[in-house]
């Protein structure tokens, strides 16, 4: 659905993208994270056909975004990190304008498209309000309504939660979950990793203009070669039997964090986790649940990036 291959770009003498490649399959929600100045916005602008990279190719739904930018743009709903509104138009007029500009047929079809976009984003009650009177959170919702009005298969959102209050942020991520259920392919960047983790199916981490990790949070943790910590919740305290788990292949450490909670550090993939659970049951522990600490996107991010100033 979205494919970027070997993107390189410089602003003057400063090289901002180094051979960036990524692929987002249909229906995926791809979280694009990285420190400030890592090249997220530049990459997203290249994907949105709003920047011609020095090198590399971008394809959106099979359309070459470098060679045919206008065609590619009509397949994309783009929400940039700092977009304004036409203050002298009402909310409905503003969305209508974008429907017309993106080529939605006039008449009933356009009217329906506008109503659906407003309804989906919860903007219908504010449809006759002038854009200049809206708060930042509502403007952000309006930006999503604008991006959705021509029913694009792909959505590119650059820091959509930036500057929003907690309620507006929660509502925005709820909206993204609904869009994911509708089958939209979404690529979004955000600094709010806890909320991003609840929406995304894949993550790409960029640092200093290069992709340093790509895949699910767990896959990235595995690829980075870090031990995973599995938390085993027990029916009753493990006592001395917990230490027996050290005998299972791949187990590096067993710590009793609470009387009924064991933290087992494992070197290896999911098969080792299965081995540990089997081992726990075998030695007579009453296992009532298993969770993994490494699904935390923030920890994955910290692992993958060096935190150098850029």
């Amino acid at each position: 659905m979205i494919t970027a291959t070997g993107l390189c770009h410089s602003f003057g003498a400063r090289r901002v993208l180094h051979d960036v490649s990524l692929a987002v399959a249909p229906g995926e929600v791809f979280g694009f994270v990285g420190p400030n100045g890592a090249g997220k916005t530049t990459t997203i602008r290249a994907l949105a056909a709003m920047l011609v990279p020095d090198e590399g190719d971008v394809e959106v739904c099979g359309v070459d975004a470098v060679a045919r930018p206008e065609e590619a743009r009509r397949l994309i709903g783009f929400v940039p990190d700092s977009g304004g509104v036409y203050e002298r138009l009402s909310v409905r007029e503003y969305v209508e304008f974008h429907a017309a500009a993106t080529g939605v047929e006039p008449g009933a079809a356009r009217h329906r498209a506008v109503e659906i976009a407003l309804d989906l984003t919860g903007m219908t009650p504010l449809a006759d309000r002038m854009c200049g009177e809206l708060s930042k959170g509502i403007r952000q919702r309006l930006a999503v309504a604008r991006a959705l009005v021509h029913d694009p298969p792909v959505l590119l959102l650059d820091e959509p939660a930036n500057g929003l209050d907690p309620r507006a942020r929660i509502e925005l991520f709820e909206l993204l979950r609904r869009l994911r259920e509708m089958g939209k392919t979404i690529l979004l960047s955000s600094h709010i990793l806890t909320e991003l983790a609840s929406v995304v199916t894949q993550v790409g981490i960029i640092e200093r203009g290069a992709i340093v990790a790509c895949g699910s949070a767990q896959q990235i943790a595995n690829a980075l070669g870090h031990d995973r910590v599995v938390l085993i919740h027990l029916l009753e305290p493990a006592g001395q039997r917990g230490a027996l788990l050290k005998g299972v292949e791949g187990v590096a450490e067993v710590v009793e964090r609470e009387p009924r909670l064991l933290a087992v550090t494992i070197q290896g993939d999911e098969r080792r986790v299965a081995d540990v659970v089997r081992g726990a049951v075998h030695i007579g522990l009453g296992v009532i649940g298993v969770t993994s600490e490494w699904t935390d996107l923030e920890k994955v991010f910290l692992l993958a990036t060096r935190g150098e100033l850029q």
């Binding site: 206008e70 743009r73 940039p80 977009g83 304004g84 974008h98």
Partner: peptide, 14 residues
């Protein structure tokens, strides 16, 4: 200045 030029160009208008 208001940041709408990008949005306008992103619609695919030439």
């Amino acid at each position: 200045q208001s940041g709408t030029l990008d949005l306008l160009l992103a619609t695919g208008m030439t």
